[in-house]
């Protein structure tokens, strides 16, 4: 059984505040958004638990802003800037967060387009079931690059999603007794791939105004769905035509 102990989402205000902090001077937007999403979750978790917590991070577009800056600077000024390069990797955010939080447990970076967030949940569950760790931060972040907005919008058109940015974190554990706060919900199983839309009542929280329309917003939508009903199933369409479904229950 996997227990949800906390959830956090990045807001624009929190992201902007974090980017002004001295420690975040060299941080990318993904790093700041990811930190904004997990700040409150981490604050309510004992420090000794966080040190031994795993981190699974996912981003569909990765560090596109810094990749663009690196390539542009290289082409125009014939200068390869190390800071842009080190921050251009998909796992730069993981490296940064591991340093900020003092993580030494497993950290994994994933990227699988619209399925990234689902994979993040599944990889977190895999680590928990393996026993490698008993607590995992499952975090996603995706940003928009202003100079590439029109092109990104063109490519998002066929997916049915708009183009937004955001970040979300779920704190998952197999040991809820280690926490002071009660668990929010629990999952007996992970995401199950089904070929047809679920017949039982299932929730698919639309990309309403409250959930920014970013590629990896599934974790945020799942957390909001869990908050809306004591038990149920959440499903999401897959790009191969099938569906993924996950069921939860809240404490009685």
């Amino acid at each position: 059984m996997i227990y949800l102990m906390g959830a956090g989402f990045a807001t624009e205000a929190a992201t902007d505040r974090i980017r002004m902090l001295p420690d975040f001077r060299k941080a990318t937007r993904n790093m700041a958004m990811a930190y904004a999403s997990l700040e409150s979750v981490v604050a309510s978790t004992p420090a000794e638990v966080i040190r031994e917590t795993g981190l699974v991070f996912g981003s569909s577009h990765g560090e596109l802003e810094t990749t663009k800056e690196f390539l542009k600077t290289l082409a125009e000024q014939k200068v390869a800037r190390p800071i842009y390069f080190q921050n251009s990797l998909h796992n730069s955010t993981v490296g940064f967060l591991a340093m900020k939080l003092g993580l030494t447990a497993p950290t994994i970076t994933l990227s699988n387009g619209m399925h990234t967030a689902e994979d993040v949940f599944e990889a977190a569950r895999t680590l928990l079931l393996d026993g490698a760790v008993d607590t995992v931060l499952a975090t996603v972040a995706d940003g928009v690059v202003a100079e590439l907005r029109s092109v990104m919008e063109m490519n998002h058109g066929p997916t049915g999603m708009g183009l937004g940015e955001g970040a979300a974190t779920l704190l998952l554990t197999t040991r809820p007794e280690k926490f002071a706060q009660p668990w929010i919900a629990r999952f007996a199983e992970g995401f199950r791939i089904v070929r047809a839309a679920p017949s039982a009542p299932a929730r698919c929280v639309p990309n309403a105004d409250s959930v920014p329309d970013y590629d990896t917003n599934l974790l945020e939508r799942l957390a909001r769905a869990v908050n809306d009903a004591p038990s149920g199933a959440f499903f999401v369409a897959r790009r191969d035509g099938g569906f993924s479904e996950i069921a939860w229950e809240r404490p009685a």
């Binding site: 577009h61 990227s111 699988n112 092109v151 490519n155």
Partner: peptide, 18 residues
């Protein structure tokens, strides 16, 4: 933008997996 958008569909790593 339009011809670039065509090649830029390869930007997400998932395009290689697909």
């Amino acid at each position: 933008a339009e011809p670039f958008a065509e090649v830029f569909r390869s930007q997400p790593l998932s395009s290689a997996l697909d």
